[in-house]
């Protein structure tokens, strides 16, 4: 058996997960979902002065299928939300989401009938960036923090995905008495039992097998 001390100096021993995470975190491909003024700041972050390439995230792709980091920059209205969800679902695992700015995170000053009061009500979010608009440095800090999170979590074979608790997707409904409050609605696929089951099995197995 080889002892650690017998290894040459240029050999590093690590966990495969750590290595994979290290690769992932230094090669994020952002999907810019820029709907409002925050998008300008997102562009500034990508430009030469702030240079997002220093963190390995300079390859902005406008196809969700080539991306693994969605940056939602700007307010999202309720007509746009299904579009945003569809784009999110088209991205491959592993994927992350940054909610940039007050509007994307909470609706900001736009407490109106059309503006979604925080995208995290309807899609998963990993990092929130405060500010209106956030400075490019703040977005870079969010990317650095996200890299730390990626290094900490995640595994080469997606075990963390399997470990996620399964919750049947539910609609949120407005409380009829006070539309500002939310109550949990019925499961989205309530009428279609088979559709509700598709995700209950282990990854890689079909529900019938």
């Amino acid at each position: 058996m080889t002892r650690m001390t017998d290894l040459p100096d240029n050999v590093v021993i690590t966990k495969l997960d750590a290595l994979v995470n290290w690769c992932r975190k230094n090669s994020l491909w952002p999907m810019p979902f820029a709907t409002a003024c925050c998008g300008i700041e997102l562009m500034a972050t990508g430009a030469s002065r702030h240079d997002i390439a220093r963190f390995g995230a300079e390859v902005f792709r406008f196809s969700p299928r080539q991306c693994d980091l969605m940056i939602v920059a700007g307010r999202v209205v309720m007509k746009m939300m299904p579009v945003l969800q569809r784009i999110w679902l088209q991205m491959h695992e592993p994927k992350w989401c940054i909610s940039m700015g007050a509007c994307a995170s909470t609706g900001g000053v736009f407490d109106t009938y059309a503006v979604v009061q925080g995208i995290d009500r309807f899609i998963p979010v990993d990092m929130y960036v405060p500010g209106c608009p956030p400075r490019p440095e703040q977005l870079l800090q969010a990317i650095i923090d996200l890299q730390e999170k990626i290094q900490r979590e995640g595994s080469a074979w997606g075990k963390d995905v399997e470990r996620r608790p399964h919750q049947p997707p539910r609609a949120l409904l407005a409380d009829p008495k006070n539309p500002r409050l939310l109550v949990a609605g019925p499961p989205i696929f309530a009428q279609d039992e088979a559709a509700n089951k598709w995700d209950t099995g282990k990854r890689g197995e079909s529900p019938d097998s």
Partner: peptide, 25 residues
Amino acid sequence: PLRKDYPLQGRGERHNIPVVTRDMG
């Protein structure tokens, strides 16, 4: 919605959207 008797925050339209969770892929 631009009628004056329509509430500014709406009648819940902005909340009645299905939720996409992590385990939906």
